[in-house]
Amino acid sequence: MNKQHNDIEDLINDFLAKVDTATLLLEKKFGTKNILRLWRSNQIQRCGDITSDAQYELHGVGCIVHLATESVNFDYGFNNRIDGFDAWRLYIYALDRPLTYKKFCDKKILEKEFNDLILSKKIEKMSASDSLYILASNPHS
């Protein structure tokens, strides 16, 4: 039985951990975590296999990695960063895990809590030209 998580920061950390897992698989297969350039230069197909039980699907500035039992959809950020997220990506991630993130399968609740994180400065824009957010740097570390 899955444990319910009602904290948006748990959702974000879980999402980022899954992106790390996915991009490490990409790096092992293709030599880089960001495979967009390979696709755009016709070195790889838009969709394909990473391993026997993992596939990738590139889109716009991002990638969906389908693992054996779940998927993660992320965008590559400024300077090939992979630690970015937005409310939409978190919502899709929660929908794929309703037993764990039931609360965040309600888009309005997720968006409210996401906006609360922005107001409390716990998350910040990755860059001025990016629509992604990152966890705010801890000024005390």
Rank of each mutant, 00 (worst) to 15 (best):
D86W: 02
L58Q: 15
D106F: 01
D86H: 05
N115W: 06
L95C: 15
F114E: 14
K108T: 13
N80R: 11
G84Y: 09
I64T: 06
D83Q: 07
Y56K: 00
D116R: 14
K112H: 04
Y56G: 02
L117E: 05
D53M: 13
K103I: 05
A87F: 00
A94L: 04
F85Q: 07
A87Y: 05
A94D: 13
A68K: 07
A54K: 00
L90R: 09
W88Y: 13
K102L: 10
H59R: 09
T69L: 15
Y91A: 06
E70N: 07
L90C: 08
L95R: 14
G60R: 13
K102P: 02
F114D: 15
V72R: 00
D53K: 04
E111F: 02
G60D: 15
S120I: 00
A94W: 07
E57A: 13
K112Q: 14
I92W: 01
K107R: 12
F114P: 12
D75T: 06
I64F: 00
V72Y: 01
I64W: 05
L99I: 05
Y91V: 09
I82Q: 00
K102G: 05
C63N: 03
L117K: 06
N80E: 08
G62T: 01
T69S: 11
K112N: 09
L90I: 08
E57R: 06
K112D: 07
K103L: 09
L117S: 06
A87C: 04
I64H: 04
G77W: 14
Y76M: 04
D96A: 12
Y76I: 12
L117D: 11
I109K: 15
F74L: 03
P98D: 13
I118E: 08
V61N: 07
G77I: 13
N73H: 04
R97S: 06
F78N: 12
K103G: 10
V61F: 05
L99T: 10
N115P: 04
R97G: 09
D106P: 02
V65H: 02
D116C: 15
H66K: 10
F104E: 08
G84H: 06
A94V: 10
S52A: 08
I92P: 00
P98Q: 11
G77T: 11
L95F: 09
Y93V: 02
A68F: 01
R89E: 05
G84K: 15
K108D: 13
G77V: 12
E57S: 15
I64Q: 07
D96M: 07
N73I: 01
Y76C: 01
Y76G: 03
E111T: 13
D53V: 01
D106N: 08
G62K: 08
L58M: 09
F85A: 01
D53S: 05
P98V: 04
K107N: 11
L119N: 09
P98E: 12
A68E: 09
L99K: 11
Y76D: 03
F78Y: 14
I92M: 08
D75N: 15
F114N: 14
D116Y: 12
K108E: 09
L119V: 04
S71E: 02
Y56T: 01
I64Y: 10
S71M: 05
D53N: 07
N80Q: 02
T69Q: 12
